[in-house]
């Protein structure tokens, strides 16, 4: 039986993971696009991304595009697996 994941279950982090997992594997989304999608502030999003990165669920790629610093975020394989397990756990709770 799958177990709920406390790190992922937090509402903002749940939506972050849902957005990242919706992308094709290995694709990464720009920080400001993710922020707009979630309707979050820079600081709030940054804090939750750090938590997910520490857990190994996401990868943060800081790079330069046209000489401007840009941050891209993607779900790791471990993150995708953890998210799927969390969704399974949620579905099992409803089925009970």
């Amino acid at each position: 039986m799958a177990e709920l994941n406390e790190i992922i279950h937090q509402p903002v982090r749940l939506r972050i993971m849902a957005a990242l997992v919706a992308l094709d594997a290995d694709n990464e989304v720009e920080f400001t696009t993710l922020r707009d999608l979630l309707e979050a502030t820079d600081g709030n999003l940054g804090a939750h991304l750090r938590k997910l990165e520490e857990a190994g669920y996401i990868a943060v790629n800081k790079t330069f595009v046209e000489r401007k610093p840009r941050t891209f975020v993607s779900a790791t394989g471990e993150g995708r697996r953890a998210f799927r397990a969390h969704v399974s756990a949620l579905e099992e709770i409803i089925k009970k």
Binding site: H9, P11, L14, R15, A18, A19, V21, A22, L23, D24, N27, V29, T33, L37, L38, V87, L90, E91, I93, I94, K96
Partner: peptide, 24 residues
């Protein structure tokens, strides 16, 4: 609770749709 689980799944579905709709 089951209702909280339903809310979480609904939030996931909404975010997935929104992401695909916007950027994926």
């Amino acid at each position: 609770s089951p209702s909280e689980a339903e809310e979480a799944l609904a939030a996931i579905q909404k975010m997935t749709r929104r992401t695909r709709h916007t950027i994926s």
